[in-house]
């Protein structure tokens, strides 16, 4: 389970160019392992979605990737940098290796085309040799995979409920048997019951089909339940990374701690919700030093002056954990 699937190295993403540009993602290193569910959490504006869209160059203008690499490790063959692909190569890479389930369940489907058209056009683009009948059969299969009756192929998006639409999107994401599925707040627009149904189904599908998931949400309690490892983002940087269980048991960064206590856990003992005082930083004028220090209850002298580096904390024997906080300086 520890083979590497995707490696993000020193990724920097800006919005805009020149003096007015805003640094939305700063020097992010992140590794996705084969078959795992990696959760990425943070408040809105933390850069988590920017990171996800930046990976495959899908950020809308004025987004610009200002540095870093996204190394993809295919099962066979040499690893390569996704950001260095030509347009043509990138088109072939997209969806075949990394597919995305988008935030808005409502707007991800083209309102003027039938579900069948939207499921088959991706097959046609990537497998030009396939027959129409084969593509339709595959589309039926995909709907069955997410538990939607095949007669819905002829429906238009507006004829489906929000939950069904998001299921269609998940089915679509699996159309080319990708290695990585990126989920950007896939269930936020849905009610809690449907949300859990869909995520449960997804975990089941992952076990059957063996893809890895980058799961982005602001709801840390969902991640604790559904992911293997969790990375927390704040102000465009990753501030803590740990196994889901480890983070839930013992979060080191005060921000992770705050985030964990702002959502009610569905299971386990009742806890008092504390939330985090203050509001996310303005990306235009970031605080000096650790971006979290103005809101941090434990902030002390070095926090204001220097940015803490992400690293394994001192005196923690457990593997697989890193944090960027002056309370837990790197060893």
């Amino acid at each position: 389970m520890s083979e590497i699937e995707l490696e993000i190295k020193g990724l920097n993403v800006d919005y805009g160019l020149g003096e007015q540009s805003v640094h939305a993602v700063r020097d992010v290193d992140l590794t996705l392992r084969r078959g795992e569910v990696l959760g990425l959490a943070g408040e809105s504006g933390s850069g988590k979605s920017t990171l996800a869209y930046g990976l495959t160059r899908l950020l809308p203008p004025p987004g610009v990737i200002r540095g870093g690499q996204v190394i993809y490790h295919p099962e066979q063959g040499e690893p390569f940098d996704v950001l260095g692909l030509s347009d043509r190569q990138l088109r072939a890479f997209r969806w075949a290796q990394t597919s995305i389930v988008f935030q808005g369940a409502m707007n991800s489907l083209n309102p003027v085309h039938k579900i069948s058209t939207q499921l088959t056009d991706v097959l046609r683009a990537h497998e030009p040799g396939s027959t129409r009948a084969a593509r339709l059969a595959r589309a039926r299969e995909l709907l069955a995979l997410v538990g939607i009756p095949a007669d819905r192929l002829d429906s238009y998006p507006h004829q489906l409920s929000g939950g069904m639409r998001q299921r269609v999107m998940i089915g679509m994401a699996l159309a080319l048997r990708p290695k990585i599925v990126i989920m950007d707040e896939p269930t936020t627009a849905l009610d809690v019951v449907v949300q859990r149904q869909i995520l449960g189904q997804l975990v089941g599908l992952r076990e059957r089909l063996g893809f890895s998931v980058l799961f982005i949400t602001h709801d840390l309690s969902l991640l604790v339940e559904f992911s293997d490892r969790i990375a927390i983002m704040y102000g465009g940087r990753i501030v803590e990374q740990a196994s889901a269980a480890g983070l839930h048991k013992d979060s080191l960064h005060p921000y992770s701690h705050g985030l964990l206590h702002s959502f009610p856990a569905l299971r386990g003992p009742r806890e008092e919700l504390s939330g985090i005082p203050g509001s996310p930083p303005d990306l235009r004028s970031m605080p000096t030093g650790c971006a979290f220090h103005p809101r941090c209850p434990h902030s002390f002298d070095p926090c204001v002056r220097r940015v803490p580096e992400l690293g394994a904390p001192q005196g923690r024997p457990e593997q697989d954990r890193s944090v960027a906080c002056w309370l837990h300086p790197a060893s």
Binding site: Y53, T56, L58, P60, L90, R91, A92, F93, R94, W95, A96, S99, I100, F102, Q103, G104, N107, S108, L109, N110, P111, H113, D121, V122, A125, H126, M169, M172
Partner: peptide, 22 residues
């Protein structure tokens, strides 16, 4: 062009023509 479904179409790796037209 800023709608989600257009970004999805790009993410699906469809040809530029297909994304633009349909």
């Amino acid at each position: 062009a800023a709608e989600d479904y257009v970004t999805v179409a790009h993410a699906k790796g469809l040809s530029e023509r297909r994304v633009m037209v349909s």
